[in-house]
């Protein structure tokens, strides 16, 4: 199953000019050349002239190098950073409505607490929860929720920034230990 948290997928953080139609250009390019998008998130940056598009790409559909080079040919794309899970901070938000009878409700609440999620709404037979965090954490949470029955589920897609101080070897060693 293709899931946003899969390490096999690659994250591209793409800085674009904040102009009409830029997202369509990116989406068109993926469609035209047969590249697969796993998830996509777009929003303006702190500079109104630019937006950042975070694209999780399926590197099995095409070599990442070709995807990046073809993307960079788009005139409105200013910068592309390739982020692996190891050198990026990645976050995603999920909300889900889960079947929750009186018997299972407390179990679900317990799970939400363990994952440090939030309860958004409680009904007689269902419960709506939210969770933000690293995509792999959300994958795990989603797997556990499956047993209870998922009515609706929506994930935002991944957003990511490079880790700071990537060049300091001591910190990297500490992280890996």
């Amino acid at each position: 199953m293709n899931r946003p948290g899969d390490l096999a997928h690659h994250t591209l953080s793409v800085l674009v000019e904040n102009k009409a139609g830029v997202l369509a250009r990116v989406a068109d390019l993926f469609a035209r050349r047969g590249y697969n998008i796993v998830s996509l998130a777009v929003a303006p940056t702190d500079d109104v002239a630019f937006s950042r598009i975070t694209i999780v790409v399926d590197v099995e559909s095409a070599p990442l190098e070709q995807i990046v080079k073809q993307l960079f040919k788009l005139i409105n794309i200013v910068e592309i950073q390739e982020l692996s899970a190891f050198d990026a901070v990645e976050r995603e938000l999920m909300i889900a409505t889960i079947e929750a009878s009186t018997e299972t409700r407390t179990q679900i609440v317990e799970l939400v607490n363990i994952f440090e999620g939030k309860i958004l709404a409680v009904g007689t037979a269902a419960i709506t929860v939210s969770l933000d965090g690293a995509p792999s954490k959300i994958d795990d949470f989603e797997t556990l929720l499956h047993d209870y029955g998922i009515r609706d589920l929506q994930r935002t897609g991944r957003i990511a920034l490079p880790k700071m101080d990537r060049s300091v070897p001591v910190l990297r060693a500490v992280n890996e230990a």
Binding site: A20, G21, A24, R25, D28, L29, R32, I75
Partner: peptide, 14 residues
């Protein structure tokens, strides 16, 4: 026009 010609131009403007 810009939508139709997007993939057959190096760039287009409206």
């Amino acid at each position: 026009t810009t939508g139709i010609t997007r993939s057959v131009t190096k760039h287009n403007f409206l």
